[in-house]
Simulated assay, not measured.
Amino acid sequence: MRYAKHHKSETRRDIVETASRRFREEGVDTVGIASLMADIGLTAGGFYAHFESKEALVAEACNDGLAITIAQLREYVNYHPPGQRLSALADAYLSPRHRDAPGYGCVIAANGAEIARRPPETRALFASQLNEWIALIGEILQEDGLSANPASIVSAMTGSMILARSVDDPVLSASFLESGLRAVQACIATNQT
């Protein structure tokens, strides 16, 4: 049976998208190649026609997932006028909706701690996208007329999300989201006085 001209690239895209979502939902190390390939209707043996190793997939899936997240966040803030962008972004990022859907949320908040234990090549790709996230926050700060360290904002938001997801107590989880929002709002308030 002959496949369509773009079948291989479409299959690779399906593998990367499915892996990215499942890595965020379940964790990188818990997702096996056989179950991942079964999710898209293929056998584990077919994986190696697309990737030389699981690590190559981890690097690409995390890189791709974070690039998509950054593009979505950039698009989201553009719906808000300058002066309100950072606040709107923080409200959306530090929401129960984002907390409760890690498979469709930020790779940093879902897999950052795991990436720290990956090989240098994977960490380098991740760091590249993390720098893009920090740069986006820098742009938003500038557009909003705010002066703050963009890495501090990223740290406050992602750290709060990680902690909110790590507990099963809904009140404590909500308090982590709220503390992240207060940190961002304090940055905004400091600039308005």
Rank of each mutant, 00 (worst) to 15 (best):
A148R: 01
V28M: 09
P96E: 15
A44V: 12
A90L: 10
I15Q: 00
R13I: 04
R97L: 15
L146V: 07
A88L: 07
Y48V: 13
V31R: 12
I188S: 06
I33E: 14
G65P: 05
N149F: 06
I140C: 05
D14N: 04
I115D: 00
N111A: 14
I68M: 01
T122R: 02
F23D: 07
G32Y: 13
G145T: 07
A124P: 04
L163Y: 13
D64A: 01
A49R: 14
M1A: 09
V16T: 02
P120D: 09
P102T: 13
N191L: 02
A127C: 09
N149R: 09
Q142V: 03
A135K: 01
Q192R: 15
S128W: 13
G180D: 11
I137C: 11
I15A: 05
F126C: 03
G145Y: 00
E75S: 15
N149D: 15
A109K: 05
G41S: 10
S35P: 13
I115A: 05
V184L: 04
N149E: 15
A71I: 02
N131S: 14
H98A: 15
L125N: 04
L181R: 08
R85W: 06
L130A: 11
S166N: 06
Y3T: 08
F126P: 01
R99D: 02
F176C: 12
G65K: 01
R24A: 13
G180C: 12
L36R: 07
Q129H: 04
S53A: 14
C106H: 08
E17W: 03
N63T: 08
S173M: 09
I140S: 02
L66H: 04
L36P: 14
H98M: 15
A34R: 10
H98T: 15
W133V: 02
F23H: 04
V154N: 07
K8G: 02
A90D: 05
L42K: 12
T122I: 13
T122K: 06
A34M: 09
A101N: 15
K54I: 11
P82M: 02
T11P: 10
E52I: 08
S147R: 00
A113G: 12
D14E: 13
K54N: 06
M157W: 10
G145A: 00
P102L: 06
L172Y: 03
Q192F: 08
F176Q: 03
H50L: 07
A116Y: 03
E178P: 09
E114T: 13
R2T: 06
D169N: 11
E75A: 15
A49T: 12
G46C: 07
A61C: 09
R123G: 02
E75C: 11
S166P: 05
T11S: 07
M157P: 11
L136N: 04
T30N: 15
S173T: 06
P120C: 04
Q84I: 05
A88V: 10
A148L: 03
Q185Y: 15
A151C: 11
E114N: 14
V107Y: 00
Q72R: 14
I162V: 14
I15H: 00
P81Y: 07
R99K: 14
F23M: 11
P81D: 09
D39I: 09
S87M: 11
R13F: 03
P82A: 01
A113R: 11
L86Y: 13
A189Y: 06
T190M: 05
I137V: 14
A67L: 01
T193L: 03
C62Q: 00
G65H: 00
W133Q: 04
G180Y: 08
V184I: 13
